[in-house]
Design a protein around this nucleic acid. Structure first.
Lengths: 202, 202
DNA sequence: CCCGCTATTGGACAGTTGCGCAATAGGGTG
DNA sequence: CACCCTATTGCGCAACTGTCCAATAGCGGG
């Protein structure tokens, strides 16, 4: 295969790992899968990463970080606080049998036993909460929202979405995406002192 | 090894599977691990279970089902609706580095790959939601609670606790158990139309 | 006491996994 | 052009996986 610079190759490996993880899940992604996806040999991967664990950790971090950055951009473009929260809900909530969210499930389960993964997942979760908290504080400052404890509110909204999304992705039939969005919006309205239906999705 | 009655052996297998899962996680629990834990041969396990998937599902079901049954008893003994919800929150929320909740995390993640486990986890989650919904409806009936959609409220409260507990167990440092209980209680008060502090934990 | 039922053994099987290493090839520099 | 550095190959290795099956052993009933 074409010779690449170390940086490009590392990125290509992570890209390929993600493409596989999207199909089979993080836990089931193997060295050979990734090599086949890239169209190279498996030995190449160990030339750039000491272990498969590192590849998976890098892959997870890339997805989660990318989602986060994209949402940050989305929020920057949002007009008022309402639109901002609505955009946040829509962008955080998984779509269909979302493979990215399955990645989160894998990460949370493995976090207890894999320190590197725990650190990454922990840091990213914190960033999401901080992002939401900032949005809430902005709304409180300009008087659109009323919320006595933005930190607690952010964690509650985030955790509620996590919990609902978990049902959608892991169990599929019990709760559907429509319910999830509707219920999350209702909870957010209460947290932010908004009239019912103010954040409703159409 | 000592010959056992089919019932006893099945239980012994599930016991051993749990002991291993506690150490290595559900996903990493293998037939040979379980056999070694019991001090028997691996073939024995397939004499009682058609597949490893079923063993893991049975193990998960044992823990989660036991918790559920114990909470049902707890709720039967509870006096008024307030005490009932308070008992529910306290009993559902994981304690410390709760390995029972870690089992839930493992199950949710593995559900995508193991149909039998998914079915069990799905069914038990539904049962928890139904239990909470029943408690809410009882409170609404006798006028203590005010809640327009008990089904949605139950799922929201449950999902919020799941999401918060997830942070406590998987990331440990970010959110602590005290915050989790406090925040869940606040959310429950709003869902049920109770004055602030009515469900506060001491 | 013996016999039959079945719990239990222990290894075979085909597949997979992560990893390491000697050989190769390709591109940039002299 | 030739040379060297290193990206890349491709296979071997040992360990592990779930599943299956013929052989064995131990208990209860006749």
């Amino acid at each position: 295969m074409a010779r690449m610079t170390p940086q490009d190759r590392r990125e290509a490996i992570v890209d390929a790992a993600l493409a596989v993880a999207r199909r089979k899940g993080l836990a089931a992604t193997t060295v050979r899968d990734v090599a086949a996806e890239m169209g190279t040999s498996s030995g190449l991967i160990h030339h750039y990463f000491d272990s498969m664990d590192e590849v998976l950790a890098a892959a997870f971090e890339r997805v989660a970080g990318e989602d986060l950055r994209q949402t940050e951009i989305l929020l920057d473009q949002a007009g008022g606080p309402h639109e901002l929260i609505r955009a946040f809900l829509a962008s955080y909530a998984p779509v269909g049998d979302d493979w990215a969210f399955q990645l989160w499930l894998d990460a949370w389960a493995e976090a207890a036993r894999r320190p590197v993964l725990r650190e990454a997942s922990s840091r990213l979760n914190l960033a999401w909460a901080a992002l939401l908290e900032r949005a809430i504080r902005a709304g409180v400052r300009d008087g659109t929202f009323s919320c006595s404890d933005p930190t607690a509110a952010a964690w509650r909204i985030l955790s509620l979405i996590d919990g609902l999304a978990l049902q959608v992705v892991a169990h599929q039939t019990i709760v559907d995406r429509r319910d999830m969005l509707q219920w999350a919006a209702t909870a957010a309205e209460r947290e932010l002192g908004l009239p019912a239906g103010d954040l409703a999705v159409t």
